[in-house]
Design a protein around this nucleic acid. Structure first.
Lengths: 137, 137
DNA sequence: TCCTTATTGAAAAAGATTTTCAATAAGGAT
DNA sequence: ATCCTTATTGAAAATCTTTTTCAATAAGGA
């Protein structure tokens, strides 16, 4: 099911800004801020408003197609979400990001914590930072 | 070594805003935004400026005494940090946060990723979300 | 108590995000 | 193909949030 269908199914419409933002995120290799996405759009002769970028990101995020990525201090930007549960490994130098899944390793930690704290744990945010092969020199 | 000494050691001074922010964070049970901290200060008859709250949070963060906590979508606020590397488990309903250490569980995952991606990994951000005992009903 | 200078608070500047609203255009119905 | 309804857009304004600037203040060593 493509974006068109996913939107129509909810009574929403596939519009130029939505197509453009989606395409930019599909091609991106690093997390992009709303401003950066807007910039990319303009450079690609797609004349969409910054406001629509914000609105589209919010929509795509609630639809689970896009995910927000955080840094330790700042909020970095948005990346395309591949299906299922996953996380990002971001290069500190060039901001390139790769996605990974498979956090079975965390399960013992989660169980131990639930036991110790009495909290139930149902979601987690895991992001790794390092250097990509190109930036290691 | 108390805050006074830690600051003086670096040629910095213990001032009213710094004391106040520190005290508020020491008493807090949930992550607080700069605005929230400022509000608390005013309610406690401590007349400090919002600007100083920002400056103090930045200072305390670089000193490792305070840590920034993130939500999935927004950047939530600041909490007191215990020394060393650790993470947070945040209640989705009441925002209460508990700290935990012990991320040995992550090491196999990190090693596997370094191998698969060619990235080196040297930092990570891990936050868990769930429900605290009180909010489970 | 004095002196140096780190720090403060208020205002202004700079940025980021949200709201408002008339004009536009998606896409189901005809 | 064409209409019609209404979701969506873009621009401007409003609203926050965060950072800078700078003269006045006050920490804390001498």
């Amino acid at each position: 099911m493509d974006l068109q269908d996913k939107l129509n199914q909810k009574g929403l419409r596939l519009t130029k800004p939505r197509q453009v933002v989606m395409t930019i995120l599909e091609r991106a290799t690093v997390p992009l801020s709303p401003q950066a996405i807007h910039q990319h759009a303009i450079e690609n002769q797609a004349d969409i408003g910054l406001v629509s970028v914000y609105r589209t990101l919010e929509l795509l995020t609630t639809m689970g197609l896009v995910r927000r990525v955080h840094g330790q201090d700042s909020c970095e930007g948005y990346v395309l979400a591949s299906p299922g549960h996953h996380h990002h490994l971001v290069c500190r130098t060039c901001d390139r990001a790769v996605e990974f899944t498979g956090t079975d390793n965390l399960i013992p930690l989660l169980e131990q914590l639930q036991h110790e704290t009495g909290f139930t744990v149902d979601e987690h945010l895991l992001q790794l930072y390092g250097l990509c092969p190109d930036c290691q020199n």
